[in-house]
Amino acid sequence: MQHHDERRRFLRIDFDAPTELRQGDRRWPVKLIDLSLKGLLVECPQPWDADLTQDFDAIIHLDPHNRVQMQVELRHEEPRRLGFVCLYIDVESMTHLHRLVELNLADSTEMMRELRELIE
């Protein structure tokens, strides 16, 4: 796991939506703190008994018909927060996430920079 003070290349936006982490048959409802094109930060659920060597699926329910789902890896763990980096996201989820970030960024050039970073 990398230290959480590493230089962030992606701006995070505050966003509140029903979110859960999944690992195999295990599920943890979590409070979403923020997200970016490359990951998310959540409050640590209790109990937190995940296998930290395995990846997770993060599901952010935008409304009853739309969600963002991504395969994520735990990057940093604090006493009350968990930071994840996205390993894989499908096109539909990326479209929803792109739109969320775009609506929350005032500067369209910043959005283009982030998309270039993500592609590289």
Rank of each mutant, 00 (worst) to 15 (best):
1 M>Q: 05
1 M>D: 02
2 Q>G: 02
2 Q>E: 14
2 Q>Y: 05
4 H>P: 15
4 H>S: 08
5 D>C: 05
6 E>G: 05
7 R>N: 00
8 R>Q: 09
8 R>C: 04
9 R>Q: 13
10 F>D: 01
12 R>I: 14
13 I>D: 11
13 I>L: 01
15 F>A: 01
15 F>S: 00
16 D>N: 07
17 A>V: 10
19 T>Y: 03
20 E>Q: 12
21 L>Q: 09
24 G>C: 02
26 R>S: 04
26 R>G: 01
28 W>S: 03
29 P>T: 03
30 V>F: 03
30 V>R: 12
30 V>I: 14
31 K>Q: 06
32 L>D: 08
35 L>M: 04
35 L>W: 04
36 S>M: 11
38 K>M: 07
39 G>C: 12
40 L>C: 08
41 L>H: 07
41 L>R: 15
42 V>Y: 03
44 C>W: 01
44 C>Q: 13
45 P>T: 08
46 Q>N: 05
47 P>I: 06
47 P>W: 01
48 W>G: 02
48 W>H: 03
49 D>R: 04
49 D>L: 15
49 D>E: 15
50 A>M: 08
51 D>K: 02
51 D>T: 02
51 D>P: 14
51 D>R: 07
52 L>C: 10
52 L>S: 09
52 L>W: 07
52 L>A: 06
53 T>P: 14
54 Q>W: 01
54 Q>G: 03
56 F>D: 03
57 D>A: 04
58 A>L: 00
58 A>C: 09
59 I>R: 13
59 I>M: 08
60 I>Y: 04
60 I>C: 02
60 I>T: 05
61 H>Q: 13
62 L>W: 05
62 L>R: 05
62 L>N: 06
63 D>W: 03
63 D>T: 08
64 P>E: 11
65 H>N: 06
65 H>S: 13
65 H>P: 02
66 N>A: 06
67 R>I: 00
69 Q>M: 10
69 Q>T: 12
70 M>V: 07
70 M>S: 09
71 Q>T: 14
72 V>I: 15
72 V>Q: 02
72 V>A: 10
73 E>M: 08
76 H>P: 03
77 E>I: 00
78 E>I: 06
79 P>N: 01
82 L>W: 11
82 L>Q: 12
85 V>T: 13
85 V>I: 15
86 C>W: 10
88 Y>E: 15
88 Y>M: 11
88 Y>W: 11
89 I>H: 04
90 D>H: 14
90 D>F: 12
90 D>V: 15
91 V>R: 09
91 V>H: 01
91 V>F: 06
93 S>H: 10
93 S>V: 15
94 M>N: 07
94 M>P: 10
96 H>G: 05
96 H>R: 12
97 L>V: 13
99 R>S: 08
101 V>E: 00
101 V>D: 00
101 V>A: 00
102 E>D: 08
103 L>C: 12
103 L>D: 08
103 L>E: 08
104 N>T: 09
106 A>T: 11
107 D>W: 06
107 D>S: 11
108 S>E: 15
109 T>E: 10
109 T>C: 00
109 T>N: 06
110 E>I: 11
110 E>M: 10
111 M>P: 01
112 M>P: 12
112 M>L: 13
113 R>D: 09
114 E>D: 14
115 L>S: 01
116 R>Q: 14
116 R>K: 14
116 R>F: 13
117 E>R: 15
117 E>Q: 15
118 L>N: 07
119 I>W: 02
120 E>P: 01
